[in-house]
Design a protein around this nucleic acid. Structure first.
Lengths: 311, 311
DNA sequence: TGTGATCCATAAATTTCATCTATGTATGAG
DNA sequence: CTCATACATAGATGAAATTTATGGATCACA
């Protein structure tokens, strides 16, 4: 009833080689095998495809028509096999990665650079978006993995969440608030100072509000910024005191433009996590990238074991 | 070593159906068969193609990449089979036909019209060229068949020559030469009249020269024309007497513009033959056309049986 | 005018491997 | 808890692809 696709392969090779014998060699089979395959194909298709003659075979008119299609078919298969081999050798591929600004600059970019140097053929698509958006894209399979700042103990069905390191925060002030450097402050004491912080849409904002509330204080920034990297410059300009990820403070601290305010309360801390879909297939090239990202993992005290966290 | 192309077909159907079970139904095999085929393919390719899950299977990243190529491959095969079926049903196809002006108008066109009415999908390419050019194109496979005026007994290695009918000639004159109508003339007697005939390149010209010479006369037209259909009008204009294929004379004879000169000698006659390559493959749609053309064949006395001529 | 080389066809034996039957496992739905 | 559905597995079976061996036709070359 239905024609075996292997026959078409034999047909294609025979047509390009120009003889049954040559085709047999190319296919690593014997000549009678090719003869038989073509004869079968001709019977199934109901028309002659080759004219046998001395020195080889020649396509009939119908054979030529058939070849036109079978040729592109076979070429596609051959190309498919090549591309698949490249995929396996990590010579090509594509990974979509989600990240926050914070994690992108502080964790991801150096690792991506190393990975890209090792596997230059693999396209890296970086998606810098809000944390909730990235999480839903991970679940939808629109992103392959992400490195995000999430609350301590964060977990989600469908997602593997591997903590990489703490995202520590620091309360800082510019030299206009020099009086705060003298001694340890409590959060309530700091409430009377103008605050530089995140705007309302972010997850971190909500967490900070909770953290402040936990210590009988209120987080209500006088200046709200959309991205973390803007806080330090604003603090340097003495527009207020700020609670920022430690990673952003190093340069300004070293230059003496800001100083750290010691806090009585245990400091606000988040997790930087590597996240990816639990039961979805990953591109082959992603395992290497995951390993690369995991290499920055720092052992930190974990209150309880977390799902998906490797030993 | 090499992957069976049948596996790719199974892969394609499975990917489009979305489950092994559905693919099995579509392929008229059992589900374990599909399971096995895909597993084998995955092993041979060295990577997982589907994620098995509740309710069916889902392509992995690599599977998606593979599908992109395999899809066009399979679609080409399917299209190939469709086109081939059309070819077999004579719904499509192409025939290249050679002809002389004489045969084109008198034999071929009516038959081609009938054929085309019956098989409108088949393209007919008509090549109106010189006889030697057409013969060599037949041998090169550039033409599929031809209807030509050739010398009696014409034959050629590699070519099948089937006589269809005689190409009879007629000596005619316009009313300016009314005196010739009185009685039968010999060729020699006619030599003193101006002659309208073929120009030197044609085969017929050479044959006529031979025929004249055979009867102790010389064929040297005072007016030379490239095509036969021009002779009658020139004769009507009383520029000379002419030897032309009978087919061209009917209209002018009926209108009394010319008359026939009776000739003592046996009249010059040629063969109208259907000619095609002997050992070359023919398009499927050609057999019907050959039959159509043969239908005009007239039984004529054959001095000896000719090769390729059916009973 | 043989002779060897080349290429396709054929026949019979062999072996492969694709497929089937039967059954198991997992997982939602009602 | 049971049913329905989908994929996995194992062993048996048989169709068919392949091989070996051989023959015939054609062509180049001496």
């Amino acid at each position: 009833m239905s024609v075996s696709y292997d026959s078409y392969k034999v047909f294609y090779v025979t047509a390009t080689e120009g003889s049954f014998t040559a085709a047999a060699q190319a296919l690593f089979v014997t000549q009678p095998s090719v003869t038989h395959a073509i004869k079968t194909l001709e019977n199934e298709l109901g028309c002659r495809l080759f004219v046998r003659s001395r020195g080889g075979v020649e396509l009939t008119r119908e054979g030529s028509v058939l070849l036109k299609y079978v040729k592109t078919a076979c070429e596609n298969i051959i190309e498919a096999e090549e591309v698949l081999n490249q995929l396996k050798k990590l010579e090509t591929g594509e990974i979509s990665i989600g990240a926050n600004e914070t994690t992108l600059h502080n964790c991801l970019l150096p690792q991506l650079a190393k990975y890209h140097a090792k596997y230059p053929g693999i396209r890296l698509k970086i998606n810098n978006n809000s944390t909730p958006a990235i999480l839903s894209q991970l679940e939808d399979g629109k992103l392959d993995c992400a490195v995000l700042v999430v609350p301590k103990g964060f977990h989600k069905e469908d997602l593997v969440v591997e903590p990489l390191s703490d995202q520590t925060y620091m309360m800082i002030a510019g030299m206009g608030f020099r009086e705060l450097s003298a001694r340890t402050q409590s959060l309530r004491q700091l409430e009377k100072y103008p605050l530089v912080g995140f705007c309302e849409e972010t997850i971190s904002r909500k967490e900070m509000e909770a953290w402040f509330a936990q210590h009988q204080a209120v987080y209500r920034p006088d200046i709200e910024l959309a991205t973390a990297d803007l806080i330090v410059p604003v603090v340097v300009a003495n527009l207020g005191i700020g609670l920022v990820p430690s990673a952003f403070t190093e340069e300004a601290l070293a230059e003496g433009k800001i100083f750290r305010i010691r806090i009585r309360e245990r400091l606000f801390v988040q997790d930087i996590c590597l996240i990816y879909a639990k039961d979805k297939p990953h591109p082959l090239c992603m395992n290497e990238l995951l390993e690369q990202i995991r290499s920055i993992r720092q052992v930190s005290p974990q209150p309880k074991s977390r799902k998906g966290s490797p030993s």
